[in-house]
Design a protein around this nucleic acid. Structure first.
Length: 470
RNA sequence: CGGGCUGUAGCGCAGCUUGGCAGCGCGCCUGCUUUGGGAGCAGGAGGUCCCGGGUUCAAAUCCCGGCAGCCCGACCA
């Protein structure tokens, strides 16, 4: 290992992950165990993700709102499975204003309960439906084994909550979010291939009747749940009394959905695209897409570099000038590489004398000299290619680490290094227990062709995607 | 909850066995020389040695008590 370099992924993947997050200045551990300080580079990625998600959420018709951080403890217990699922990880506030509270309040682990208590108030008629609400917020789930971005006690996310007149409409909306918001953002923006499917009852969200999921495969062969969209049926509408008068004058309970993705996606980006030199960002999520790096402080170099910055900015790229020539060239190159900036433009006297500059493409670590006048066009071209190439590389990795099997034993074998696909029925009644003994789980269920289950499909006939997971 | 390990500069660590000036690497600051893949030289700053008590002329070091963190197991999902 070269001086100051990070550990290789092959040698120690968890340590590699920690080092990338630290050295790329994405996040630090907070003072309270399990908490996280998101630094500008990490937060910049989040802001870009947020913007992409928010636009799609609004296109899907949902509106943003904000509900309180504190929830009366009693609300949680209104839905039996929900409270059972969340009580082990709740943070509970027992004192306020120096006095013991009459009723403790919990810090939201998710907002189903508060939001639904208001849905009950707002929804009277079928004309009030559908009600489509999203909120951007922090949530708290006390974690014993935290890892930055992947599992922290507090994290940032988006949670959508909707109410519909019919089960079919709720289901269609949960799937709309899954495909047009989550799948689209993960694949087209983050360049991360994901499997979609639904969870087994064992893995399902506490309180849902069906949980749809996007599952990614990380560089160490472990799966990561990257986003979920739940059909809640009438579980919460019955618990909270959310009723509406239908067109015939009858009183019905609404059908609901909820869905969320979090800052965990940043962890997915690191583990899905990173290499032994650090992070590799798709341009769409790079806070800085192009770094123009001055090799030396000379008037000609500065003039050329500043000219390129202006030109590339005008072309619509997020560009930053690195003129910290008091720091060595090598050091600065490595720093930008760690941060995953897609393109570096290296401007130095030697090239410049011949009217050239050097372009370095991060994801390929490819270096080439171009005429200064060709830079804009070359950068445009590289920027258009990076995302698709990262996506193709990750998809090839997943294909190479996915295998179809027929028995649980084979699934255990294959699941050790990647994903195993097996008919759920072939796992047997205690299949999930036996997988759990080997630290494996069913990540999702899909049709043999990878498609989503249709109404009427029997889970036993669907393909269970089995793997280790985060 | 059980077992093991660790707390020393911003980070990583040595020193503890055998008590005797608080150390090393990286990072940081200043100056000069450098700058095309983690620069060199010189100078400098930075400490509640986890906390409390004890033994001793003298404690980072030995003894007692406590706290925190990490790993493994159990539990949970």
């Amino acid at each position: 290992m070269a001086k100051g370099a990070i550990v290789s992924r092959a040698e120690d993947f968890p340590r590699w992950y920690q080092e990338v997050v630290a050295r790329a200045e994405m996040a630090d551990n907070g003072p309270v165990r399990g908490t996280m300080v998101i630094r500008p580079w990490g937060y910049g990625i989040w802001e870009l993700l947020q913007a992409e998600l928010d636009r799609r959420i609004k296109e899907a018709g949902a509106e943003n709102a904000y509900f309180p951080l504190f929830i009366p403890e009693s609300y949680l217990s209104l839905e039996a499975e929900h409270v059972e699922g969340f009580s082990p990880e709740l943070a509970v506030v027992t004192h306020g204003g120096g006095k013991k509270l009459e009723e403790p309040v919990v810090v939201r682990p998710t907002s189903e309960t508060v939001i639904n208590s208001f849905f009950a108030k707002w929804i009277q008629s079928h004309r009030d439906l559908p009600l489509l609400i999203n909120q951007w917020a922090n949530v708290v789930r006390w974690e014993l084994r935290p890892r930055l971005f992947l599992r922290t006690s507090e994290f940032l996310w988006q949670e959508g909550h909707t109410a519909h007149a019919t089960e079919a409409e709720a289901r269609a909306y949960a799937l709309l979010i899954l495909r047009d918001v989550y799948l689209s953002t993960m694949v087209d923006v983050a360049a991360l291939p994901v499997l979609t499917g639904h969870k087994t009852p064992r893995e399902r969200f506490a309180g849902a009747i069906r949980t749809w999921t996007c599952e990614g495969l990380m560089g160490d062969g472990k799966a990561l749940q990257m986003g979920t969209s739940h059909e809640l049926g009438q579980n919460f509408s019955r618990a909270f009394g959310i009723t509406f008068s239908n067109a015939e004058g009858g009183l019905e309970h609404v059908w609901q959905t909820s869905w969320g993705v979090s800052t965990r996606l940043i962890g997915a980006l690191v583990m899905g695209h990173g290499d032994d030199f650090g992070l590799r960002l798709p341009p769409a999520l790079a806070p800085t897409q192009v770094v123009v790096l001055m090799i030396k402080e000379e008037p000609e170099v500065r003039a050329a570099a500043e000219g390129l910055v202006a030109e590339l900015r005008a072309a619509g790229h997020r560009v930053r000038l690195d003129d910290r020539t008091e720091t060595s060239f090598g050091r600065r190159s490595v720093d930008w590489e760690l941060k995953g900036v897609p393109v570096r433009v290296e401007v130095g006297p030697r090239d410049l004398a011949e009217g050239n500059v050097t372009l370095v493409t991060r994801h390929l670590r490819h270096k080439q000299t171009f005429a200064r006048t060709a830079v804009r066009q070359e950068v445009d071209g590289i920027m258009a290619r990076v995302g698709p190439e990262l996506l193709a590389e990750a998809a090839a990795f997943r294909a190479a680490h996915t295998v179809d099997v027929r028995t649980l034993e084979e699934a255990v074998e294959a699941g050790g290094t990647g994903l195993a696909r097996i008919r759920l029925g072939a796992l047997g009644a205690d299949g999930e227990d036996r997988l759990a003994d080997k630290a494996l789980s069913v990540r999702c269920l899909q049709r043999p062709d990878g498609g989503l289950a249709e109404p009427g499909d029997d889970d036993a006939d669907l393909i269970a995607v089995v793997g280790r997971s985060y």
